[in-house]
Design a binder for these strands. Structure first.
Lengths: 132, 132
DNA sequence: TCGGACCTTGACGTTAACGTCAACGTCAGG
DNA sequence: CCTGACGTTGACGTTAACGTCAAGGTCCGA
């Protein structure tokens, strides 16, 4: 079997370029424990898993999640297969809280968007009026 | 005609309490030009307009808008009745850009929410399995 | 063998968005 | 008249999330 996409790796520079961030950002997130790239004699080697986590993290950052919140969420992706009842219960409770927070932000952004488009509509009316 | 709700005013402390922020935040936003309360002999007097703007601003802050972005938007609410064609056109263009950005964030948050609820669902299955 | 283009760690700088503190004025209650 | 609760400005402190720079290692083509 030939080398498959799942085996693909990246250097810091490569991954940074692809994600549209700097290498500093990747090192920072590593120091914060959000990603854990392998090493090849000192040099970092990022795999598909690191890349996937980074994309999730960056998406969260775009709508106001802190890096700490991002870490909490991506960590939960790993804990979901846990076999300990106690742990699963607290995890689930936390997940529900997080979902609730996300829904609130969703409502906030929806209202703001609706207002912005309203104002834009007023502008269009005004323009039509001035031109008509 | 008696005093109506529209004439209601607030002191810094009162408004801060109602909005759930500190007086420092109100003074900061004023310094940044987002609100412009009246004065009663040195003391700030906030009117319904200030309160309304603050609520819009705080809502924006909750989902990741910077204070600068918030100011840009609330300022546009005022410029929408402009009578200058040129100004209306650039304003409208900017509003469309902003709306586009908001829609992107909306998509980001929607995807994240869907993933979080997925993980929660996995947790529930696992729990049912362990208990069943 | 030399210069570039990468990579490393470590340390200090920067910006946003406030928090905190000092020093002062003002006004009502006891 | 004094205290306490409120207000003011000004200045410095803090935290997150990186940016930037220094000082060095490695490898590769000319």
């Amino acid at each position: 079997m030939a080398t498959r996409a799942i085996d693909r790796t990246w250097t810091v520079g490569e991954l940074a370029d692809e994600l549209g961030v700097t290498t500093r950002t990747l090192r920072f997130y590593e120091a914060e424990g959000l990603i854990t790239p392998e090493r090849a004699g000192g040099n970092r080697v990022y795999g598909p898993r690191d890349r996937a986590r980074m994309r999730l993290i960056l998406r969260g950052r775009r709508f106001g999640m802190t890096v700490a919140e991002c870490r909490e969420i991506v960590d939960m992706y790993d804990g979901a297969e846990s076999s300990e009842l106690r742990q699963l219960i607290t995890l689930l409770a936390r997940l529900d809280e997080i979902a609730e927070g996300l829904r609130r932000r969703q409502a906030d952004i929806r209202r703001t968007l609706s207002e912005v488009t309203d104002v834009a509509e007023q502008c269009r009316s005004r323009l039509a009026e001035l031109r008509g």
